[in-house]
Simulated assay, not measured.
Amino acid sequence: MTYCVGLRLNRGLVFMSDTRTNASIDNIASFKKMYTWERPGDRMLTLLSAGNLATTQAVIGLLEERSKAADNRTPSIYDAPSLFQVARLIGDTVKEVIRISADGGQKGEATFGASFILGGQIKGGETRLFQIYPEGNFIEATVDTPFFQIGEHKYGKPILVRAYDADMSFEEAAKLLLVSFDSTLRSNLSVGLPLDMQFYEAGSLKRGYERRIEQHDPYFSAISDGWSDALKVAFLSLPPFDPNA
């Protein structure tokens, strides 16, 4: 399992992903789940992945190969004229990989399933954020749905829903996502450190701030401990239950 979030702000985009994958309780490893393609001044694209590891790596591998191809026989994310077309290209690649890998007519939501979050900007277009499903279709973030989660998302969603503000800074968004990830890490062992984080400044058309948050990171430890203490204080400050009321 995994947990990835793409968050849309007025200032740009924030991405965060864990790195844990496990085939069984005693077969746990770390794999990168955040990938970036950049042509400064023209486009900056970031992709987060969740699901079957072989499927997601095959999709990323095809996208990488086709982005370096010397001919135009296969579509490339560097040639797509808009983020919408990049999302469509990735969706088609997901369907292609699943169709080739599937045995016995299994569908995208079965063994070979994979989901993605795509965000970034292409010159002449707006900053955009998409969620791509195993079936190859996709949706775009809006004012009403300003963030996407894939993987083990239920534990970290409440804090995002309650505290998100489109006007928040990148630093505030990072703090918000770290609280969301801390809640998930404490609730599900299939999500784990290190965490990868990236900012994208709208209009920059280049890679922004990046950081890997390792085990025993001082700031993440402070966030985790501080959030736990704050929850206890908030709980104790609530009015007591009166069975006679």
Rank of each mutant, 00 (worst) to 15 (best):
G119R: 01
F148V: 04
K95Q: 15
I77R: 07
A141P: 06
G156M: 03
I213P: 04
R11H: 11
L53M: 15
D217F: 01
K68T: 14
F116L: 10
K33M: 12
R88F: 09
S187C: 09
N52S: 07
K157E: 13
A110T: 13
E64T: 10
R20T: 02
G104A: 04
K107M: 07
R186M: 12
C4Y: 01
A87C: 05
F15S: 03
K33V: 01
K95G: 05
K68G: 05
V5D: 03
N137G: 09
S67K: 00
R66H: 12
A166S: 15
L53Y: 11
T55N: 03
A29I: 07
Q121F: 02
R212C: 04
Y219K: 10
R73N: 15
E172Y: 00
A234L: 11
P134W: 01
A202E: 13
E140C: 05
L160G: 00
E135H: 12
L160I: 00
G6Q: 05
P75F: 00
K206R: 15
I28R: 08
F241T: 06
F170M: 12
F84R: 13
T2Q: 02
T145C: 08
M197I: 14
K206F: 02
Y219V: 13
I132Q: 03
L13Y: 01
I132K: 02
E210F: 02
R207A: 14
N244S: 14
A114W: 02
L231K: 08
F130R: 04
R11V: 02
K206P: 03
E201R: 12
S82L: 03
F112N: 15
V161Y: 04
Y200V: 02
P75Q: 05
I223E: 05
P81M: 13
L47A: 13
R128P: 06
Y219Q: 13
L48E: 13
T56A: 01
Y164T: 08
L47W: 07
F199L: 11
S30A: 13
F220L: 06
F31T: 14
R211M: 06
D144G: 09
F199N: 07
E201W: 07
Y219W: 10
S24F: 02
E214G: 06
K232Y: 11
R66S: 10
S221V: 03
K32C: 12
L195F: 06
T111G: 12
